[in-house]
Write a protein that binds this DNA or RNA. Structure first.
Lengths: 220, 220
DNA sequence: ATCTAAGCCCATCATTTGATGGAATCAATA
DNA sequence: TATTGATTCCATCAAATGATGGGCTTAGAT
């Protein structure tokens, strides 16, 4: 009992995995309609038919990419949570922003594909979704925004989205934005982190002080 | 001396203008590669050849759409600036967020196309750009982020981008995000405004207090 | 040695898609 | 009325694109 995706992940040297990796990159750059199977095949150095042999039709490969990315993002969020767990809110947010920014700059297709998915339509119906709702709930808890672990309030969801979208935007928009500020990549990344921390943290810190220990991290 | 775009804007009832309007909507939903000339033609209730007759090739029409949107966005930003001019920073930001959010929810293609442009690549080289750099500078001044009207510091640019991207994200992502929080459109928009104001304003307000009257709005 | 299944590519197909030539329509004008 | 120019659609083309059948090769089992 073994999805094609699992198989590809177990054996990273297999052709299946190689195609998936290339598909991630190309779909991430050009989106679903902007990507042709030939582009992916060329990137992988193979024939189109080989691609179809392993993954079926284009849409299936795309969905595999989405699942793959979903998994990576979830893992990354859990890694962050493990490290920031128990610290005071301000520090927690600063570390989380730093870590997630670094991680996503290393895997920009993740941000790209998530944004493509949220902002654009595809001509065929998409039956598959990112786990953003669940992830958002997790982050909300990690940010002290919600008491109830089961259900996250709309307001808390939105606040988390402001933060996550902020990071994704600067990762996906690197090409445009870095040209605007005319900086090297490293300097740009530093600036992204600083600007995000500067803008995003104070609001939450202020509320955290006010409501005191009403919601404590020690709860988890 | 009269660009095709100008002509279309002068006569909003012309076929040229109608095609442009439809193209805005469809390109805004599906992006460049996700849109076919046939989709636009059908939306306008005309034949493809009529479309080509008025606007030339697909890429030309797309660029006309971008210029059109650019103009609208610029006008809208000037409208906002006129109203918030002279008020204290906190109030200024709150009004600006409210107004821009309303405006963009009324014209979601604007946010969509700007984000498409920033986040994705197109297979052909894009020689045309949004005026985001200039706009960003204007907003930075309006937000008290920069003293020099000529040159905006990278840091100020980034801070403005956090704000603008935040708004665009919720407009473009309405479909995904509203489903997540399960709200009616009006409630969603209210929540967007509140969340954005809650998260975005305190950081700037705090710095504004600290540095006192070093940079005053009265300067403009 | 033979057989089998998997992996891969070449050749090819059908559809979609961008684009155009030319005929039909219509309004304004000489 | 005849002419002209602008506008629109029908028919069609060429290229791009998703997809597949069948053959070749290789590794492993029999």
């Amino acid at each position: 009992m073994d999805s094609p995706l699992e198989k590809a992940r177990r054996d990273p040297d297999s052709m299946k995995a190689k195609i998936l990796a290339c598909a991630r990159r190309v779909f991430g750059e050009y989106g679903f309609h902007g990507t042709t199977t030939r582009m992916i095949a060329q990137e992988a150095g193979i024939d189109i038919s080989t691609l179809h042999y392993h993954w079926g039709e284009k849409k299936d490969l795309y969905e595999a990419v989405i699942l793959d990315i979903n998994r990576d993002l979830g893992q990354s969020l859990r890694d962050v949570e493990k490290i920031i767990h128990g610290r005071p809110l301000t520090e927690r947010m600063a570390i989380a922003i730093d870590m997630m920014t670094d991680y996503l700059f290393d895997h920009p297709e993740i941000s790209n594909l998530i944004l493509f998915r949220h902002y654009g339509k595809t001509r065929h119906e998409a039956n598959l979704d990112f786990n953003v709702p669940e992830f958002t709930g997790d982050i909300a808890r990690s940010m002290n925004l919600t008491a109830d672990a089961r259900k996250t309030s709309p307001r808390a969801m939105m606040e988390v989205l402001v933060v996550m979208n902020g990071i994704h935007s600067f990762v996906s928009g690197e090409h445009s934005f870095r040209a605007m500020v005319d900086l090297e990549k490293e300097a740009y990344i530093r600036l992204v982190k600083d600007a995000l921390k500067f803008v995003l943290i104070p609001a939450f810190a202020k509320r955290d002080e006010k409501q005191g220990s009403g919601r404590k991290d020690t709860k988890f």
